[in-house]
Nucleic acid binder design. Structure first.
Lengths: 188, 188
DNA sequence: CTATTAGTGTGACCTACATCACATAAAATC
DNA sequence: GATTTTATGTGATGTAGGTCACACTAATAG
């Protein structure tokens, strides 16, 4: 199963068996059931998570009205956590919980910085990952600024048709920034 | 003037004089007047820019209705370019132009990858920068999802009171994702 | 297999913000 | 310093999407 991490890293940089074993030794495997939390709002954030299987959501809950907004879905081959809290070692403003039964590899900040410092190629790997993440968020901002909720829904359907099968529409709605009722009225 | 780059990098990692001179030799200094473009939509993107002085905006223009949306303002101590086009060496979808007379240090992708590969500490520096950028964009997404245009304006005023003095409100409006007319009606 | 909870659809009505249309003021440019 | 161009304010009106309320259906848990 953790071979998935190796394949994932090797998309960017090749590894010897020994290197990979060494890297892997810095991760902690975790298995979670539906509705379990990996990060809870207000609590410290120990780990960044690489998803081996399953499906998670990273969300923010507005304390004023209790409304939930989804920042990110994460499934196989994705990394996720509350990065603000993780990198600053502060308390989470986001929650991270499982929409499906999920397996992850957890990496503490200490271990991340350790393997980055020890292995230049890993620092390179994480730089590249972070760059792609940045670009993806920029696209999302552009899509929030320029397109209607209906269009955003269509784009999501086009990009991730399977996601809609796996995730309740209420949650899709709060990812798109639209009310459940409005989403349900879209024709597609 | 380029000492600013050194100070900027040394916030994350110390440099010797020789190291800094070497790094600096990979940058090209440029001076630009108001309204000059550093990146033009449709054209290849050669450089990432570190801003020494002045003020720039990175924007997307919707081809359907010609409306402009601001993705980012960049001033002293900030990096900017169309990262999607820069990293993939494809054509720009964004434009980057000067709101004020501006001085930058330009770094080609080749030179960036070269100094990152040669100097582990520079790769580290860029990883850290990219991480912060990611977190900032995530906050912006959250703010677009959870707050009204009026609140976003107030937050912007609170964070960057000087920006409002330097940038016409039409452009502030298209950063906030609100029409010029609506912005002008806000009471504050 | 029954009971509770989570998910979805739909009507009626409301509101934040967009659009269009002018008017005026302030900068740039010749 | 006269003339474009750019920036800004404000009224009238339109609309996407929000909110509330209720009905129904599908999961999930005991």
């Amino acid at each position: 199963m953790s071979e998935k991490l190796r394949q994932h890293i090797e998309k960017i940089t090749p590894l010897t068996d020994i290197e990979f074993e060494y890297i892997l030794s810095h991760f902690v495997p975790k298995k979670l059931k539906k509705h379990q939390f990996l990060v809870q709002e207000g609590a410290p954030v120990q780990y960044d998570y690489f998803v081996l299987s399953g499906l998670l959501k990273a969300s923010y809950t507005n304390p004023e009205d209790g409304k939930e907004y989804i920042l990110q879905f994460a499934w196989e081959d994705w990394w996720t956590t509350d990065y603000q809290a993780y990198f600053n070692q502060s308390n989470a403003i986001l929650s991270l919980d499982c929409i499906e039964e999920t397996e992850v590899l957890a990496l503490s900040l200490t271990n991340r910085e350790k393997i980055c410092a020890e292995m230049h190629k890993i620092e390179h790997f994480f730089r590249r990952k972070s760059n792609s993440g940045y670009i993806a968020l920029q696209r999302r901002i552009l899509s929030l600024l320029t397109t209607s909720a209906q269009e955003r829904y269509e784009q999501l359907l086009a990009c991730y048709p399977d996601l809609i099968q796996r995730v309740p529409k209420t949650i899709i709605a709060s990812y798109l920034g639209v009310s459940r009722e409005t989403l349900s009225r879209f024709t597609y």
